[in-house]
């Protein structure tokens, strides 16, 4: 299962990278979102999958799955949400200011 998940992560990272390399700003933001999905799955996978029960005491006696990656991912989900939201608003502002959503057109003056 872990190997399969890692391969899935690899595919997601490839897609995320491909999107980030495009010129449209929305596709770039989508790329970062896909990339963060991939990373969350990766962290969970490298911690070991299904090694025990839900990490909540008092339900069943151990063993439990590793709680530490879950805590890390919980933080990461929230942060990546904040990033995505900020990027979206930034895209809105950039479009409003410059009239384009194409990053290659957003370059400064050529003589700068």
């Amino acid at each position: 299962m872990e190997s399969l998940m890692v391969v899935l992560v690899g595919v997601l990272v490839s897609v995320g990278t491909y999107l980030i390399l495009s010129r449209n700003i929305i596709r770039i933001i989508l790329g970062t979102a896909v990339l963060s999905h991939a990373v969350h799955l990766l962290i969970l996978t490298v911690g070991g999958l299904k090694t025990g029960g839900v990490p909540v005491l008092g339900q069943k006696d151990g063993p439990f799955t590793d709680a530490l990656p879950q805590a890390l991912i919980l933080t990461a989900i929230v942060i990546s949400f904040a990033t995505t939201a900020l990027l979206l608003v930034l895209a809105y502002r950039v479009y409003k200011t410059n009239g384009t959503d194409d990053v290659s057109e957003l370059r400064g003056m050529p003589d700068e």
Binding site: E2, S3, V6, V7, V9, G10, V11, L12, V13, S14, V15, T17, Y18, L21, A38, L42, T45, V46, G48
Partner: peptide, 16 residues
Amino acid sequence: SIFVGATVTIVGLAVI
């Protein structure tokens, strides 16, 4: 993109 994905896969496999 494929190289980046492959590299992450390698890292993941190495870690597990």
